[in-house]
């Protein structure tokens, strides 16, 4: 029981020192944790929707996602860094989505 407590407390500390650079008022940390919880819960719930494809795949994906999300807890830092306003990051994601869109559609036709 105590290690889960220490895991929660060090993830809160991780938030604290991660947010050190900008003004670190109480509501910054709470809103960052709220965002963290929303991401984890919504991603896991929307992963369940894969059950229409096939059940075993969904179980594996949910386990994998759950493990990944719970181990590196402050995922909000990564998500915010991935979405800052620099043009190269935006063009990278734009071209990536275009490529994925075209390939998934072509992959759909072939088989």
């Amino acid at each position: 029981m105590s290690d889960t407590y220490s895991k929660i407390s060090d993830s809160v500390n991780k938030f604290k020192n991660k947010l050190k650079k900008d003004q670190n008022t109480g509501d910054n940390v709470t809103s960052a944790m709220a965002a963290e919880l929303t991401i984890i819960s919504t991603v896991l719930i929307s992963a369940i929707m894969l059950r229409h494809l096939n059940i075993i795949l969904t179980v594996l994906i949910i386990l994998g996602l759950g493990l990944y999300l719970s181990t590196n807890t402050p995922i909000i830092g990564k998500i915010r860094r991935e979405q800052n306003d620099s043009l190269d990051r935006m063009t990278f994601y734009v071209i990536l989505t275009l490529a994925i869109l075209v390939t998934t559609i072509y992959w759909g036709i072939i088989n």
Partner: peptide
């Protein structure tokens, strides 16, 4: 999901 998490922070 992405825009709500960005809006919060």
């Amino acid at each position: 999901i992405l825009s709500i998490s960005m809006a919060l922070t």
